Simulated scan of single mutants.
Amino acid sequence: MRNAWRITRWDPGAGTPTYLLASAFTVTPSLCAQATRVDCVIDSSNSIRGTTNFRHFAHAAESLLACWSFFRRYPAARPRLVLKDLRSIDGVIWAESLVRLMGCEVLGGIRAWQYYLPMATLNAAGCAVRGALRQRSGNGYKGREMKWLMSESDASELQQRLHRNHTAGGVLRVGIANRRGSRNLSNVDAVAAALSSALRSVQASSRGGGDGLQHFMRVDVNVVADLGGWTFLEQATWVSAQMLVVMPHGAGSVNYLFARPCTAILEVYPFGYYLPGEYLNLARAVGALGYTAYPGDTPYNDTDRHSSPAARYQARSVSLAPDPARVAEWAVEAVAASAQCRRHQSQGARAPPREAFA
């Protein structure tokens, strides 16, 4: 049932995988002594809406990032995407930009069908090793969390290629990325004001304690009406610059890919539509801290009751008005958690090494 807004740290449990394993891919090795090309195949069996264009850039990112991780396991080979039964990513600006950042060639449409020749022919032509996800890696629901990458270092490499900007010293940047249309934050101004007031109040009273605010000279709360009108670089740079991010659940959340480790991210969900294992597992994969805001106490049960296509559409089509006071309380706690995370990192904690293919 609907209830007061509840904000919680998203913790799927120690047994929940964050990263793709090598076993998630089928791999056909090169017949040459040394592979000179590495191909990653995306088709209808391992991607959502596999027979259409990648018009939904966040769903395109699911497949593209998996291929990026696969490419990185063969650093000496030239990477190539093979869109076996997909049309094209042409015109999907975010996806096109990600592919350019990945530095890979793309074969799609008819060319992909022509390309799909017997393996001996492929190897004779290019000494290629070929891989593909066995199936889509999840959908974000409990127990089916989306796995985007094979390691945190895969995200770090993309971030370094983008020459991301770090937060200026002494400034605590808090970003609220709203949406136009469905799932917009209808009270975004009230949320921003509450965040700003709470953080500045705690900052003024800080005396070197453990709240994390004593290191900042000022607090900057900025609101973006909709990231959708921004370029790929602008979206990525904005997310990278924030220490705290508040965002309604939606495609723009795929930009968590560019969040810095220990960034605190609050994703806001509508009643009856709760999928934290989708984008927040991407945040987890890059080392960020994920939180959820939901208007009730039983989000998974509510989502189960809205499982029909019509009910899901209706649940996704509303505006959201999270309690500003609760969001402000979260922000103060999140700054302290972020500071603790950074201290832990400075003490030598490291992400797990990349898994190699046999």
Rank of each mutant, 00 (worst) to 15 (best):
residue 22 A to K: 00
residue 26 T to A: 11
residue 26 T to S: 11
residue 27 V to W: 05
residue 27 V to L: 14
residue 29 P to Y: 12
residue 29 P to C: 11
residue 30 S to A: 05
residue 30 S to P: 02
residue 32 C to E: 06
residue 33 A to F: 03
residue 34 Q to E: 09
residue 35 A to W: 03
residue 37 R to H: 06
residue 39 D to G: 03
residue 39 D to V: 13
residue 40 C to H: 08
residue 40 C to G: 06
residue 40 C to N: 01
residue 40 C to Q: 06
residue 41 V to Y: 03
residue 41 V to L: 14
residue 42 I to K: 00
residue 42 I to M: 06
residue 44 S to K: 12
residue 44 S to W: 12
residue 44 S to A: 15
residue 45 S to W: 13
residue 45 S to D: 15
residue 46 N to S: 07
residue 52 T to E: 09
residue 52 T to P: 04
residue 52 T to R: 12
residue 53 N to H: 12
residue 53 N to Y: 09
residue 56 H to I: 09
residue 56 H to K: 10
residue 57 F to W: 05
residue 58 A to Q: 12
residue 60 A to T: 05
residue 61 A to I: 08
residue 62 E to V: 08
residue 64 L to F: 06
residue 66 A to R: 01
residue 68 W to G: 03
residue 68 W to K: 02
residue 72 R to P: 01
residue 72 R to W: 14
residue 72 R to T: 12
residue 74 Y to G: 03
residue 75 P to F: 02
residue 76 A to L: 13
residue 77 A to I: 00
residue 77 A to S: 09
residue 77 A to R: 04
residue 77 A to G: 05
residue 78 R to S: 08
residue 78 R to Y: 00
residue 79 P to I: 03
residue 79 P to L: 03
residue 79 P to V: 00
residue 81 L to H: 03
residue 81 L to F: 10
residue 83 L to C: 10
residue 85 D to Y: 05
residue 87 R to E: 10
residue 88 S to K: 08
residue 88 S to R: 10
residue 89 I to M: 07
residue 90 D to H: 09
residue 91 G to W: 04
residue 92 V to A: 08
residue 92 V to D: 11
residue 92 V to Y: 08
residue 93 I to T: 12
residue 94 W to V: 11
residue 94 W to Y: 15
residue 95 A to V: 04
residue 96 E to N: 04
residue 97 S to N: 08
residue 99 V to P: 00
residue 99 V to H: 01
residue 100 R to Y: 10
residue 101 L to I: 09
residue 102 M to G: 01
residue 102 M to T: 10
residue 103 G to M: 02
residue 103 G to N: 06
residue 103 G to W: 11
residue 104 C to E: 01
residue 107 L to I: 15
residue 107 L to W: 01
residue 109 G to P: 01
residue 110 I to T: 13
residue 111 R to D: 15
residue 111 R to K: 14
residue 111 R to I: 03
residue 111 R to G: 13
residue 112 A to L: 01
residue 112 A to S: 01
residue 113 W to N: 14
residue 113 W to F: 15
residue 113 W to A: 13
residue 114 Q to T: 14
residue 114 Q to E: 12
residue 114 Q to I: 13
residue 117 L to N: 13
residue 117 L to I: 13
residue 118 P to L: 05
residue 122 L to M: 11
residue 122 L to H: 08
residue 125 A to I: 15
residue 126 G to D: 00
residue 127 C to G: 06
residue 127 C to A: 14
residue 128 A to R: 09
residue 128 A to V: 03
residue 131 G to A: 06
residue 131 G to E: 04
residue 132 A to L: 02
residue 133 L to R: 00
residue 134 R to E: 15
residue 135 Q to K: 07
residue 136 R to Q: 14
residue 136 R to H: 15
residue 136 R to Y: 07
residue 139 N to G: 13
residue 139 N to C: 11
residue 139 N to W: 14
residue 143 G to N: 07
residue 145 E to C: 09
residue 146 M to I: 09
residue 147 K to P: 03
residue 147 K to S: 04
residue 148 W to T: 02
residue 148 W to S: 07
residue 150 M to C: 08
residue 151 S to R: 10
residue 153 S to F: 10
residue 153 S to H: 09
residue 154 D to E: 05
residue 156 S to P: 06
residue 158 L to M: 01
residue 160 Q to L: 05
residue 162 L to M: 15
residue 163 H to I: 03
residue 165 N to R: 11
residue 166 H to S: 12
residue 166 H to I: 07
residue 166 H to E: 14
residue 168 A to M: 04
